Simulated scan of single mutants.
Amino acid sequence: MSRQRILALARAVVAVAVVAALVWGIARNWSQISADLSRVSLGELLLSVVPAALGTWLTMLGWRVILADLGSPLHLAPAAGVFFVGQLGKYLPGSVWTVLVQADMASHLHVPRRRTGVAGLVTIGMSVLTGLLVGLPAVPLLLRQSGGGLVWVVLAVPVLALLLWPALLNRIVALGLRVLRREPLDRGLSARAVLLTVLLYCLAWLCFGLHIFVLARAVGGAAAEVAVPSLTGYALAGALGMLTVILPAGLGARDGILALVLASAIPLSAGAAVALVSRFVVTVVDVAAAGVGWAYARRHHLVRSRAEAPLPPV
């Protein structure tokens, strides 16, 4: 058996093990979790959709800023179509499907695949780093040690800020292209675009955190107690889940971490219920955004075959 097949098999085994552990944990405590799930009313469920949808929209805007800064500005309709449809690729194991789908769709709008690929990879990295930054206050809650945990939070802030520094990002991108034996980009990322995207992504993570806050309150959590775990816990869980590239959309990892962070303020079964409802809501938002974005772009003749598509404005 080749090395690639062994690695693929190992990744599959780990992914199955993580998901199986999640399913087993839910099944074992289903009576408690189901009781907490029943406490979430339809109104509260719909209310949680609003910040989740806003967070998803802000994520697209950040990707659009980076793509435009690299030399391919897109109007909102085609940008939404390319980004949101491509985002469905994260529900497949591996981290490259989203980028590949986005690169293929954007090429129909005369955007170079290399440029879309770099934009996709850069924004994935920025999403992870901003998620860790916003999620730093949740680290002590996850580790259950306020003293030592806070020390690591303070030390991590300058490290994450340095990794998001525009000059360093450009060097990392250039090095990556050189390692892959690809031609360098026509231009580097500007400080304005990087800082604007960081701001948009931090706001997006906070919106997802507000979505968790609504659900945590719905299962009985006190506002003062669930505020910090909710607003920062999803960012930490989401960022760490994105690092588990073998799991589709961080399935299992994100949900488990989020439940553990929320368990600092509400019972673990309630935290698991919130994680399950959140997974459902975010998935529905992703699918709906992809459908609406694609339909809007097609209706306005903005996503067509490569031969028919007009050249984007310079």
Rank of each mutant, 00 (worst) to 15 (best):
A8N: 14
A10Q: 09
A10K: 07
A17Q: 12
A17K: 03
V19R: 12
A20Q: 05
G25H: 14
A27M: 03
W30A: 04
V40N: 13
S41F: 03
L45S: 07
A53T: 01
L58C: 04
T59C: 01
M60S: 06
W63M: 10
I66A: 10
D69R: 02
S72W: 00
L76D: 15
F84K: 08
K90M: 07
Y91W: 10
S95F: 01
V96A: 15
W97E: 04
V99W: 02
V101T: 03
Q102G: 04
M105L: 10
M105N: 03
L109M: 12
H110K: 14
H110P: 09
H110T: 13
V111I: 06
R113K: 15
G120M: 02
L129A: 08
P140A: 15
L142V: 10
L142E: 11
G148E: 10
L150T: 15
L150M: 14
V151H: 00
L160H: 12
A161P: 00
L163R: 13
L168H: 11
L177E: 10
R182W: 02
P184L: 04
P184G: 07
L189M: 05
L203E: 07
V214C: 10
S230R: 14
L240Y: 06
V245L: 06
V245H: 01
L247I: 06
P248F: 00
A253N: 03
D255S: 13
G256S: 12
I257M: 06
L268D: 03
A270G: 09
A272T: 13
A273D: 06
R279V: 00
T283N: 13
T283K: 13
A290N: 14
A290F: 14
G291W: 05
W294V: 15
Y296A: 15
V303D: 07
V303H: 06
V303N: 07
S305L: 12
V314R: 15
V314F: 13
V314S: 15
